[in-house]
Nucleic acid binder design. Structure first.
Length: 489
RNA sequence: CGGGGUAUAGCGUAGUCCGGUUAUCGCGCCUGCUUUGGGAGCAGGAGGUCCCAAGUUCGAAUCUUGGUACCCCGACCA
């Protein structure tokens, strides 16, 4: 399993690919650019979904579902939007096959669609076309809807979880009577994403605004959370867009205000995807395999018996079942692995590679001493602990591991964040990787030049950026705050 | 989509340049016995459209052409 596992230092990208496939998270499918998410990987995604879904509902949102197919003409109603997505759309042109001459099937040329259907790359257009029918008055607002769905973007180069042609995500689409309300919603959802990333994924994130060049196609403002991976590259982990009245105007969605005037609706959209799985893997895992934060681990504790005969196994089983019952009562996800098809050492290695936060081993020695052996995945340490009070101890340890993973990632980010004031220092800092805080003159030209010369992009203009007089590292023109640069996934 | 590389059993591979018996080795798998506190040992066994298609040839894993997928580097992107 973890034998012959590539180290991060040897080849980070190979390490990532091997980890994802060997830990049974996902594998490549027969379809180019599309992955199969395996049960273990999907279980982690389901934990993420469940937490996010709860957070969405707590902030007043409801789930709904819109079609996979979008009439081609819808996409072109918002000019920037179509320009942004046109190059990567899969298109359905026919609705029937027929028997071919060679025994296979061929597309029936008689069955061409009058209007071609685009497989959604995102759902703004079909949703705003729908909202048009839902909104007449200010009393119909706000609309706070989220959808869990799959989308397709025909990417040139794909990587498991980080960029696949088809991916799973959620997309929130809201409609508001005022600009202020829509902006507040955009910011609220950014906070929800940041909280989720930090509290559940144990990944610290920077909250910021995208530059106009990096904005979502059709948005007036794109807010984002940016995470730092262990190789020093940044990963955009979530986005929340203030769409202004662009889509309302494109789809003619107007409402009668309290004052009796017809006004265009204000919109937001926000999303996170299975890319978060990639972030989770790259933020915490090590050369021994996956490391999962307890809050998202499908199994938080696993109990492995060590025995020489059936009597011992029976005695251990009794102790193990008691432990499991106590853990279950505390809402801790635990499993007793008494499979006789694998030996203890094999199980240790397996659970270590799959990132189970805590492992308990119980053998004859423990039965005698009323103890267990407790091992932590994050620190790879183990100790003998008394059975007495074990469940409380585990409950505390899980929290400690969750906090410690976050702290470790936070320390790494602090150590990988640099402030530079010259272009030379900037290029030097880029070699080391990480977030680079530097002054920028605010022009798209400078941004593009820097990207061209160094491959670094402006990840965001931090929301908490302090006012500071300085001069652009590239042009020398004045700037009043630092922005964050990095090489990104 | 441009440049480079790879494709042989479930996985990792030798063989390919220079065509020639029954395609190599390790892990894994199956059976039996002994084992079980960090990926067990011994013995026996099963498993192959050599990525796909066409061509050259008496003969193709090996040569030619076309296709597909994956990896790395660019451009694009959640």
């Amino acid at each position: 399993m973890a034998k012959d596992f590539t180290t991060r230092e040897a080849d980070y990208s190979k390490w990532y690919n091997e980890l994802v496939t060997k830990a049974d998270l996902a594998e490549h499918s027969a379809v180019r650019g599309c992955m199969v998410i395996k049960p273990y990987g999907f279980a982690i995604w389901e934990k993420m979904q469940a937490e996010l879904d709860t957070m969405f509902k707590e902030t007043g949102h409801q789930n709904a579902y819109f079609p996979l197919f979008i009439p081609k003409s819808y996409l072109s109603k918002e000019a920037d939007h179509v320009e942004g997505f046109a190059k990567e759309c899969a298109v359905v042109t026919h609705y029937r096959l027929k028997n071919g001459e060679d025994g296979g099937v061929v597309v029936d040329p008689e069955a061409r669609l009058d209007e071609e259907l685009v497989v959604r790359p995102t759902s703004e257009t079909i949703i705003w076309n729908t909202y048009k029918g839902w909104i007449q008055s200010y009393r119909d607002l706000p609309i706070l809807v989220n959808q869990w769905a799959n989308v397709v973007r025909w990417e040139m180069r794909t990587r498991l979880f980080l960029r696949t042609a088809e991916f799973l995500w959620q997309e929130g689409h809201t409609a508001h009577a005022t600009k202020e309300e829509a902006v507040a919603e955009t910011e609220q959802m950014l906070d929800v994403y940041a909280d989720f990333a930090e509290k559940y994924m144990a990944i610290p994130v920077l909250k910021g605004l995208k530059t106009p060049a990096e904005r979502f196609a059709g948005a007036l403002e794109t807010y984002c959370i940016e995470a730092l991976m262990q190789d020093g590259k940044a990963l955009q982990a979530g986005t929340s867009h203030f769409l202004g009245q662009n889509f309302a105007k494109a789809f003619e969605v107007q409402f009668a205000s309290k004052e009796g005037k017809l006004e265009y609706v204000w919109a937001t959209s926000w999303g996170v995807s299975t890319r978060l799985m990639g972030a989770l893997v790259m933020a915490h895992s090590d050369d021994n395999g996956l490391v999962l934060p307890p809050k998202l681990a499908p199994q938080q504790v696993v109990v492995v018996p060590i025995y020489r005969n059936e009597e011992q196994l029976a005695a251990i089983g009794e102790v193990a079942q008691n432990i499991l019952a106590e853990l279950k009562a505390k809402g801790i996800r635990a499993r007793y692995d008494d499979r006789d098809t694998h030996r203890p050492g094999w199980k240790f290695a397996e659970y270590e590679f799959k990132g189970v936060p805590l492992r308990i081993a119980i053998g004859p020695r423990d039965l005698e001493n009323k103890t267990v052996e407790l091992s932590r995945r994050d620190t790879l340490t183990k100790e003998g602990v008394p059975l007495e009070g074990l469940a409380d101890r585990i409950e505390g340890l899980l929290e400690e591991i969750q906090d410690s993973l976050f702290q470790r990632a936070l320390d790494f980010r602090a150590a990988s964040s640099h402030r530079v004031d010259t272009y030379n220092d900037f290029k030097e800092a880029l070699e080391k990787g990480g977030f680079i805080y530097a002054h920028w003159d605010g022009t798209a030209e400078t941004e593009a030049k820097i990207k061209e010369e160094t491959k670094a992009t402006i990840r965001c203009i931090p929301l908490n950026a302090e006012a500071e007089e300085g001069s652009c590292i590239y042009s020398g023109k004045p700037s009043n705050k630092r922005v964050v640069f990095a090489k990104a996934y």
